[in-house]
């Protein structure tokens, strides 16, 4: 499977260090979610992958070869700042972009027809882009990233501004592309979506990759937390090893060193009163992200 490797990318704009030694790999067939606050360096990274910007240091390789112009033509790209020729018709525009990526006239026309059909803008082929609704412009934008049958997908905020129906369409397309073996990297602020969709996630902060891995890897914590709800007398946890705090009336957070310790805490609770639920609490991506951001604030 062809991998997209980003190795030690560094980029400065004058005094501002936009990227500081960013490295990650997106494997073929993998959906990689790229998360971070505004200005953390997501767009800069993607622009460097596409060769639109030049890195000060570091390399981008695909299939273990440097990503040159010829290879970049096989990437599908959706920039953060959407852009199409406003006064060009949808169909002509997609054919033009496909041909710039090296497709023959016939292949380009067929691909245009396919993608306008799949993305539900087939009836708009002869409409100028500026006359489309914002949602349809987004669909055409996605079509322009897919129309040349890319072997890598790099999408900057593909979900921003989409209605729930379009979000489902977009998610479906990304999954399909990954299933084809295409490495897909996309950035998003919609963390639930990233959590639901992505195989792996990278969190960037102030130009540095601060965490990356599968969602499960990221959620695994050194000190697991359990949440216990029920009707219990005060002081039930006095004998329990580990820390037990009442988060809200009838809800306790149990921090235990391991599962056995947690079970012991549960046994004490059952002895003392009625337990209605007991489950391990794993942080959501959103909480992980909040943690990263609060580190950023306190740093």
């Amino acid at each position: 499977m062809p991998d997209l490797r980003i190795d030690h990318l560094t980029k400065s704009y004058g005094e501002l260090r936009a990227l500081d030694d960013v490295s990650f790999t997106v494997r073929g067939g993998e959906l990689f979610g790229f998360v971070g606050s505004n200005g953390a360096g997501k767009t800069t990274t993607m622009r460097i992958i596409l060769g639109v910007l030049r890195a000060d240091a570091g390399t981008v390789t695909w299939n273990e070869a440097p990503l040159d112009l010829e290879a970049r033509r096989r990437i599908g790209y959706m920039p953060e700042e959407r852009g199409l020729y406003p006064r060009m018709k949808v169909g002509e525009q997609l054919i033009y972009l496909a041909r710039l990526h090296g497709l023959s006239a016939a292949d380009a026309a067929a691909a245009m027809e396919h993608w306008t059909e799949v993305l539900g803008v087939a009836e708009r082929r002869d409409t100028e882009v500026e006359k489309l609704s914002l949602g349809n412009q987004q669909r055409v934008q996605l079509a322009s990233a897919l129309v040349h049958g890319p072997e890598v997908l790099v999408l900057d905020e593909p979900f921003s501004g989409l209605d729930p129906v379009a979000v489902e369409v977009m998610s479906g397309v990304l999954r399909e592309q990954a299933a084809r073996g295409v490495p897909v990297i996309f950035s998003s602020h919609q963390l639930e979506l990233v959590e639901r969709l992505c195989d792996r996630v990278g969190i960037v902060r102030a130009g540095r990759m601060v965490a990356q891995g599968t969602i499960d890897e990221l959620r695994a914590t050194e000190r697991p937390v359990w949440e216990l709800t029920g009707s219990l007398p005060a002081g039930w946890a006095d004998a329990v090893a580990g820390s037990v705090t009442e988060a809200s009336p009838g809800v306790w957070r149990v921090e235990a060193a391991d599962a056995a310790a947690a079970q012991a805490a549960l046994a004490s609770a059952v002895k003392a009163g009625t337990v209605t639920s007991f489950a391990e609490v794993r942080p959501t991506l959103s909480e992980l992200f909040q943690g990263v951001v609060s580190e950023e604030v306190s740093a």
């Binding site: 622009r47 596409l50 060769g51 639109v52 112009l69 970049r72 033509r73 990437i75 790209y77 920039p79 700042e81 959407r82 852009g83 199409l84 020729y85 406003p86 972009l97 710039l100 990526h101 322009s144």
Partner: peptide
């Protein structure tokens, strides 16, 4: 300037020098 203002230039430059 049209290409710049409409931002289409970023897509173009990803595939064209």
């Amino acid at each position: 300037v049209e290409e710049k203002a409409s931002r289409v230039v970023e897509i173009l430059l990803a595939t064209v020098r």
